[in-house]
């Protein structure tokens, strides 16, 4: 995927083909429905949703930029500010809290040297607390990109961070619809 420091606002050919696939799921003239999947794709391509990126998505779907902005700012999976390469989203809702979500977040904070909501200085990790991810039976857990990491303990967190730092061990960071 493109390096976010040199954004040229255009999707890769693979991503452009996916946009057409998304649009084709809806009746003619209802291509606006594809905006949600396209914004996920935009994050996979560019890391986060800069205004130029949102404008580009609007142009692809032939809708007004405001129609993209209002969606981008409503849903919690969209990043309207720059984030790290690996966004660690720890579920902190009740059932996970009952089984150690706070402790999991504290351990990440200690290991990464940042507070919840922050990004490491090297741009590698952003740590977030998020609401219920439908994995209450395997708490505590977190999501990173496409993957769920469940029944977490300190050793598993250590291994995860090492894998991220070792590059290429953790696959494509942002989830997209295939």
């Amino acid at each position: 995927m493109s390096d976010s420091s040199k954004i040229s606002v255009q999707f890769s050919p693979e991503a452009q083909a996916l946009v057409q696939k998304y649009i084709a799921k809806f009746p003619e003239g209802k291509q606006k429905s594809a905006v949600i999947a396209c914004l996920h794709l935009a994050q996979a391509e560019f890391g986060w949703l800069k205004p130029e990126v949102m404008d580009y998505v609007a142009s692809l779907l032939n809708i007004k930029p405001i129609e993209v902005y209002e969606v981008a700012t409503f849903y919690s999976q969209y990043y309207t500010k720059e984030v790290g390469k690996y966004v660690i989203e720890v579920c902190h809702t009740g059932p996970c809290w009952l089984r150690g979500a706070d402790e999991l977040i504290t351990y990440f904070e200690k290991k990464l040297g940042i507070k919840k909501g922050e990004t490491t200085a090297d741009g590698m990790f952003t740590l977030k607390g998020v609401e219920c991810l439908a994995a209450c039976g395997s708490a505590p857990m977190f999501q990173c990109g496409m993957n769920y990491y469940e029944n977490m303990d300190e050793a598993k967190v250590d291994a995860f961070i090492n894998d991220c730092r070792a590059e290429n061990k953790i696959s494509r960071p942002y989830p997209i619809m295939k």
């Binding site: 799921k25 429905s33 949600i36 849903y75 969209y78």
Partner: peptide, 10 residues
């Protein structure tokens, strides 16, 4: 029949 996705909203 198509599958489509949301983006984080209870």
């Amino acid at each position: 029949l198509h599958v489509t996705c949301g983006a984080g909203a209870y």
